[in-house]
Design a binder for these strands. Structure first.
Lengths: 230, 230
DNA sequence: TCGGTTGGTGAACAACTGTTCACCAAAGTA
DNA sequence: TACTTTGGTGAACAGTTGTTCACCAACCGA
């Protein structure tokens, strides 16, 4: 081997579905935001084993089957694309939370249902979750900050939900926020473990789920012993 | 601007301290592992705002003030360098833990002392900690796995230490491991927050410290309410 | 003193990069 | 119908990349 780009995929092919080398018959071009979607999806696919700050514009356009210059019709830099992905990920996450909020019952049951909902969601949006997990500590500041902000927001929303539960309903806000932060941190960690286990040892997924439930239960027990604002 | 490398530092300068363009008078060359150290330090510096899978060999050698080919005298690929950094980081961390283990007193005091030790350590080895924090979910599999393994090892060591404390000393091992995992996760998260706060709002460091202590205390309270092996 | 090993050098290679440009087809608007 | 905007194209640019190579100076053991 004599030479190699920064990472894999050295081929120069474009896409199997474009007509010819000339500018003849683009045919089904515009179609609203199709190219934009293709760029996002291509990037998401590449980000499975690449970090955002190593994602090349040419790579993305190649993965989307589109000319390099087309990128600039939709984004100024690669960061902008990353921010859109962050937004997409947390929009669906918020949807999940809204669904889960509607049916809260007893605490024990709630833990199991919450974890199950998370598992389902990670399965359905794996690429987005992996992206978030990886870029949470990203070298790309704008994206890192955006993720941090969303997680913080998520935790405060959870805190207001917790305020409706017995035991903790009389805690002062800072204590509630702390508990919410602990729970969110646990959920994030669980999501990361799920992604790993899904790709490496799918048969061990139940262990991860059980462990997550156990930890959440531990936190719930803690709430019974905790004396707020010492 | 017409063109730009993958990221900053476009200049082609070498190093202010090398004699001339010819091969004249290298003078103080070999000196055992000096170049190797320079490569590691240069990489560590670059990794402050770059992720490992975007770290170029040429960048590293440039930062070390050394010819590109010199890299291959010490490492085969960039991953190998990363693995050495992981090793260095956890070696010093283990040292920290060994020191802390020698003087355990009462639980409350222990929490504060542990957090203080962590704070001191993060200050003293910031670059290493940031590297570990970032690459914990790295796109470079070997490094990611190495970090995960070290953290797991760290947690089991902590579990055996916990076994000497009151209350938990009669817990079955899995429960101890769970608690140790929770604590380690909290420590990792705290380290990350410390790094951020040190660089962005140094005056708010006490808040992060206090919050970490609070969370640890919460976990300790949880231990009093938890009934093992349900 | 000699021969080999270690660790450095600069030059060269092809490959890939981000970005700009003039150009053009289709869709929307008057 | 004509005109403008939108979103695509390929070619070109200079700059950077990983890796190999022959070469050489210093050190090491005999």
């Amino acid at each position: 081997m004599t030479s190699r780009p920064r990472s894999g995929r050295s081929g120069g092919e474009r896409s199997p579905s474009r007509p010819g080398p000339g500018r003849a018959a683009p045919g089904r071009s515009v179609d609203k935001g199709r190219t934009r979607r293709a760029l996002l999806d291509g990037a998401l696919r590449l980000l499975e084993d690449r970090s955002l700050d190593n994602l090349g514009i040419r790579e993305v356009t190649r993965a989307a089957g589109v000319a390099p210059a087309a990128f600039y019709r939709h984004f100024e830099r690669i960061d902008d694309l990353g921010l859109v992905l962050v937004d997409e990920a947390f929009t669906t996450l918020r949807q999940l939370m809204r669904d889960a909020r509607d049916d809260v019952d007893e605490a024990e049951d709630m833990i199991e249902r919450s974890v199950a909902a998370l598992v389902r969601h990670v399965h359905d949006h794996r690429a987005h979750y992996r992206f978030i997990a990886r870029e949470q500590y990203s070298a790309v500041p704008t994206v890192r900050l955006a993720i941090r902000r969303e997680i913080r927001l998520f935790a405060t929303e959870l805190a207001t939900d917790l305020a409706r539960l017995p035991v903790v309903d009389r805690w002062p806000t800072p204590d509630l926020v702390m508990l919410a932060d602990l729970i969110v941190g646990l959920m994030v960690e669980t999501a990361r473990r799920l992604i790993d286990v899904i790709e490496e040892n799918p048969e061990r997924e139940p262990e991860v789920v059980a462990e997550a439930e156990r930890r959440l239960r531990y936190l719930a027990f803690g709430a019974t012993a905790w004396r707020p604002r010492p």
